[in-house]
Amino acid sequence: MSLGLMAGCATPSATHPTEIRVITSGGFSAAYDQLVPLYEQATGYKVITSRGASLGNAPDSIPSRFARGEQFDVVILADSGLEQLITQGKVQKGSRVDLARSMIGMSVRKGTPKPDISTVEALKQTLLDAKSIAYSASASGTYLSNELFPRLGVAEQIKGKATRILSERVGAVVLRGDADIGFQQVSELLPFKELEFVGPLPDEVQQRVFFSAGVATGARNPDAATHLIRFLAAPAAAPIVRSTGMEPAVAR
């Protein structure tokens, strides 16, 4: 598999640093965690990974880490967050590559009733009936709190029971019983095998977000950074990306 993924990708010169520093948000992590070992095996490069939310002001969010001056070679996050970093001059203009598109879904603990979110009206009723709701503090949660909840007319009714989750996966919060239902990118919910994945939001209110990669300004080895991004976006990587609940960008 690793050799197939490397087809057409010339390995960067070994005279440059052989470590590639990556900061990635959770949306692409499930695919990333499978692909990076293949890349390291095929190239001999060592990928050093940090993680943080695409948006928000949590101390470990990607915007906060760049604001503190932390240095990376590659950044992977929701496209809106990447565009902000490009505008701020923290990611090289013209280096953006779309990797995959993600949808928002919902999970509950196994053994509990499985709510209906198959229609917009059913989703609205599920939100009203839930005793506690957890949602991401990153791109998906920003959409839910700023757009979807007001659009459904439930923002005020659920204000006291809906919680933005900082610096933690929503699935972990639901798993330990701190929330009855949890919303996040599908690719971030599926790894929690102890949970029941209910499904994605209805098409009419779904938000499809591209997770994209770019070369950070000041990258120690921009050629290696570009090479890794090309590897993650390669058509041969699509089956792995698809298996994590995302739509590969190459499928467009």
Rank of each mutant, 00 (worst) to 15 (best):
A30I: 06
V215K: 03
M246R: 01
D203W: 00
L144P: 08
E247K: 10
F192N: 14
T87G: 07
R176E: 05
L166A: 12
K90V: 06
E70Q: 15
G81W: 09
D178T: 02
I117E: 03
I133L: 10
A122L: 03
P239W: 10
S13F: 00
A155R: 01
R101F: 07
A7L: 13
S13Y: 00
L175I: 03
G153M: 09
A53V: 01
S145Q: 14
M103L: 11
A67F: 01
A78P: 05
L3R: 13
G94I: 00
E156P: 00
A10W: 12
L123A: 02
K131P: 05
P37M: 11
G199K: 05
H16I: 02
I62M: 07
T126P: 02
E168I: 03
L82M: 14
T18F: 04
V209L: 13
V205R: 05
C9Y: 11
I117Y: 05
P248M: 05
Y39I: 01
I48V: 15
L175P: 00
R51L: 06
I48Y: 06
P235K: 12
I76A: 07
L77I: 07
Q71L: 09
Y39K: 10
A31Q: 03
S212A: 14
L228K: 11
K193F: 04
D129R: 00
R242S: 06
K90R: 13
K90T: 14
G171E: 14
N146P: 00
G171S: 13
A162G: 06
G4A: 15
S95C: 05
P115C: 04
E188F: 07
V154W: 02
I181V: 15
G245F: 09
S64R: 03
G182L: 06
D33V: 04
L85W: 08
I76M: 11
V250E: 13
L5E: 04
P17S: 07
D223W: 01
P222L: 06
D116G: 07
R68G: 10
D116M: 05
S50R: 13
L148M: 13
I104F: 04
T87V: 11
G182D: 02
A10L: 15
D180I: 05
G160W: 09
Q34C: 02
T15W: 06
R230P: 08
I48Q: 15
G81C: 12
L123H: 00
S140A: 12
V22H: 11
K114F: 01
L228F: 07
E194F: 07
F211K: 01
T15F: 11
G160S: 14
S118G: 15
A234T: 12
I229Y: 00
